[in-house]
Design a protein around this nucleic acid. Sequence first.
RNA 1: GGUCACGUGGCCGAGGGGCUAGGCACAGCUCUGCAAAAGCUGCUACAGCGGUUCGAGUCCGCUCGUGACCUCCA
Length: 494
Amino acid sequence: MSTPKKLPFHLTNTLSRKKEEFTPLNPPHVGLYVCGPTVYSDVHLGNVRSFTTFDVLYRWLSHIGYTVRYVRNITDVGHLVDDVDAGEDKIAKRARLEQLEPMEIVQKYTNGFHDVMRLFNVRNPSIEPTATAHLIEQIGMVQRIIDNGYAYVVNGSVYFDVPKFAAKHNYGELSGRRIDELLTNTRDTEGMDEKRSPLDFAIWKKAEAGHLMHWPSPWGEGFPGWHLECSVMSTKYLGMTFDIHGGGMDLKFPHHECEIAQSVAADGQAPVRYWMHGNMLTVNGRKMAKSEGNGFTPEELVTGNHKLLERGYSAMTVRFFMLQSHYASTLDFSNAALQAAEKGLEKMMAAVVTLAALKGGDGPASAEVAALEQACYDAMNDDLNTPIMIAHLFDGVRMINSANDGKLALSREDIARLNGLFNAMLFDVLGMRKEEEARGDDGALEGVMRLIIEMRSEAKATRNFALSDRIRDQLAAVGISIKDSKEGSTWDRK
RNA sequence: GGUCACGUGGCCGAGGGGCUAGGCACAGCUCUGCAAAAGCUGCUACAGCGGUUCGAGUCCGCUCGUGACCUCCA
C-alpha cells in the first residue's frame, strides 16, 4: 500500500516575499518563535486568528515528522503608549485605573489568555517565557549593542542608532522600507528630543517618576524597549539563528524589523531564516484591533451578546471559519459566513460519525482514497493551505456519505485509511474538537436517549406517528435532533 | 503624502496563462409514514478599460474602489 509523500514543506518567507522550500537548520529539530500577547487587556478574535494560524503550523510541522521547539512569549512589561499618555506604561496605566498591582493585571490577563487558548483548542507552546523574567538578558543585549557602537545613552535612556546601522546593514529588508523614505514620513514620538535621528528607537527607557514597572540597570532605573524582549527570548531558547519567526502582519514594521537590527547589532547574526506573517481579521472591512474598539471577546462570541453578533457561535465553529481562508489573506468577519462555516462543520463531523460505523467490503484500497490522502498533504505543504485541504476533506465527506447510501463501494482498507486521514487532518492538524468533548457530557444522556429512541421506534412500528412525531418535536424544542434511517434512528445535540 | 496588498458567482472563500475548487444559500429529483439527513442535477463568476499571447480570472499598463503599514496593536 502506498503512503502519502509528506515532504517537503513550502512556506512564504516574508524576507524574500516568495514561497520557499523549508529546510530546518538542524533537522529534525525546528525552532519556532511567535510573538505572544501583551497582557494588559482581554485578547480578541483577531488575536485568536493569529495564534490559531501558528498553532496549525506547529501541529503541521510536528505531524510531518519534525521535533519542534515552539516558543511563544508573554509580554508583561508593557510598552509606551502614544503621546497623549507620554511616558506612561500601558500596564501601569491600567493598574492605576483598576487599583491593582501591575503584576496582578499581568496575571489576570495571562490567565484569561490561557483560558481562551484552551477554548479554541490552541496547543501550549514548548516554552512560554515572560519579559519580566528576562531582564538580565535584556540588559545584557543592550550592553552588547552599545559595545558594538550601535546604540547611545542619553539621560538614562538607550537608543538604537538606526542610520549608523543602516550604513552597514540592510535595515528595512523585511518590511521593504527605505531609510530615506522613512525619514520623510516620521512623526513625533516619545523621546524625540533625545534621539539623534527620528528613526532611532529606545532599547532601554528611563523610568519617569510614578512609573510603576522599572528595574535597575547600568543606565539607571528604567525598563526595556519595545522590541527587545523578543530578540532576547527567541535567541536565548532557539539559538542565535533559528528557523521560523511568526507574528501578525502589523508587527512586520517596526517590531520585526527592529528585532533583526538588534540581533545583528548585538551578535552579528541575522536571527531568523523564515519570517511568516499572518493577515488580519477584519470587521466590515476594517482591521479588528484594540484601538478600533471593534473586537469581541470569546465570551461575547459564545453567548452572542454583542451588537455585531446575531447569535452565539461555538469556538470550534469560529476556528473552522478561520481555517477556511488562507492565513495570508485578510478574513472578513460576518454572521452569514460564520453560519455557513457552522453548517459545513456539522456536516463534516456527522460524516466522521458515519465513517466510524461503516463496514467495508473485501478488496484493495481504491486509488481515490490514496489520491485524497496525497492531496491533503500537498495542500498543507503548499504554504499551509488549509482551505484547500478542507475542500479535499469535503470530497472525503461525499465519499463517506455515498458509501453509507450504498452508492459507492469502499473496502475495509479504504475505510481504515479514511479514518486515519480524518483523525490526522481534522483533529490533529486543524485542531478541531468534537463539541461533546468540549461540553464534557457524561454517559447518562446517552443512556436516556437510547431508551427514548427505542420507545419511539416501537411507536413507529405500530404506526403511532402522532406519538413518534411528538417525541421528535419535543426533543427538537430542547435542542436534540432525531434523524431516522433504514438502520434506525440517531440523535444529536444542536 | 510614502510604501504595499486586494477587488472572484446570491454570500463566504481557494486558485493564479489552456484543466470541476470547496462550503453556505437556492431550485428540481431520489430515498422516506412525515420530517431531517444524505445522494444526484442545475445555477458556472473573476471591478472597468486597454495591451501581451494561439489562448488571460491568472501576465503588463491605466482607471475606479477598498484596506494595511508608516504610531502600541496578532
